[in-house]
């Protein structure tokens, strides 16, 4: 009897532990299912706070915009180039631009990006043409695990990489990453303190489950921010690389329909001025638009040997300063 009493606390403790565990795991799961913006991945909260804030803002604070979005309906034009840009403004700013022969984009603090995009529609400062590896001497790659793969297996060590496994557009600027010999830094610190000629971005596979409009808005915001830090750099938005057919058919959010929809939006960011769009899927996908069977073990990441396809595609599609505005 004495023994039983001696040991009773032990079992109470173990039982309590198990109970705690049960509820905590269940609780976090429930949270994830019903409140996706609290989705906990590893240590960081991603795809979350901003999307919630944006949704609230859109629906409560700015009803006009929200209703506008709903009325438009058409998926491709949910964020249409807004009607705020009057034709007068456009012609005025394009006149200003036309006299410049150097692509020194005017500072755009406070101005909506759409104005700039609209204003610069017909101009071309850079032409797309094959380049060699030295083209990337002043380039930086911003991206998730796929860009980590590019860093490890491209063999290109003349450029910089701001890449981390699990990176998303929501946390890409403030995520704790290692950069060269520096163990802890953020893309914000690096991009705001050094000068680059080209910034390549590929982000979006991790946040495929988040709202597409929020994603696109955040992307616009990041591109805008990078342009402020790097006014002389071109920003190359790379379309999200697609996934294998099997993954695409079975995964609720990481599928090629979803990726294509996002890529179509990303393509609209290109302004033929300092933002360009590239779709590496042309190099790695089969005729059905899926990541080619046999190129990947997990249907998401290329085998190391196929990173050359990505590299070759980037080399084929360099953006070289043209100087002439047509």
């Amino acid at each position: 009897m004495k023994k039983i009493f001696q040991r009773a606390p032990l079992f109470v403790f173990i039982y309590a532990t198990l109970l705690f565990m049960f509820f905590s795991t269940q609780f976090s799961r429930t949270l994830q299912i019903y409140f996706p913006y609290f989705a906990v991945q590893g240590d960081t909260i991603v795809a979350g706070v901003s999307s919630m804030a944006d949704t609230i803002e859109q629906t409560l604070l700015n009803p006009r915009k929200a209703s506008h979005t709903v009325v438009m309906g058409n998926e491709n034009e949910q964020i249409a180039l807004p009607d705020v840009t009057s034709s007068g403004e456009v012609s005025e700013s394009s006149e200003v631009l036309s006299v410049m022969d150097e692509p020194t984009p005017t500072p755009i603090y406070g101005e909506p990006l759409e104005d700039i995009i609209a204003a610069s529609q017909p101009s071309t400062y850079y032409v797309e043409q094959p380049v060699d590896q030295s083209y990337f001497n002043d380039a930086v790659f911003l991206g998730d695990s796929r860009t980590v793969g590019l860093q490890l297996y491209s063999g290109w060590d003349n450029c910089d990489y701001l890449a981390d496994v699990g990176m998303t557009i929501y946390d890409c600027l403030d995520r704790d990453i290692s950069f060269g010999d520096i163990q802890h830094t953020t893309a914000r610190e690096v991009l705001s303190s050094s000068r680059y000629g080209k910034v390549y971005i590929m982000l979006g596979i991790n946040e495929c489950g988040s709202n597409i409009n929020t994603y696109f808005e955040k992307y616009t915001e990041v591109v805008d921010q990078i342009h402020r830090w790097q006014p002389d750099a071109i920003i190359v938005v790379q379309g999200i690389m697609k996934v294998g057919a099997q993954k695409s058919a079975t995964h609720p959010s990481i599928n090629n329909t979803n990726i294509t929809a996002r890529n179509e939006k990303l393509a609209t960011l290109a302004n033929d001025w300092y933002i360009y769009y590239l779709d590496i899927n042309e190099a790695v996908c089969d005729e059905n638009g899926n990541l080619t069977d046999g190129y990947s073990f997990d249907q998401v990441h290329l085998y190391a040997k196929y990173y050359s396809l990505w590299c070759d595609y980037l080399l084929e599609h360099g953006f070289v300063f043209n100087g002439v505005r047509r």
Partner: peptide, 12 residues
Amino acid sequence: WNGVQTVGFQSI
């Protein structure tokens, strides 16, 4: 092991 498979045996 998963990482090694993802990289592909030809590239390790």
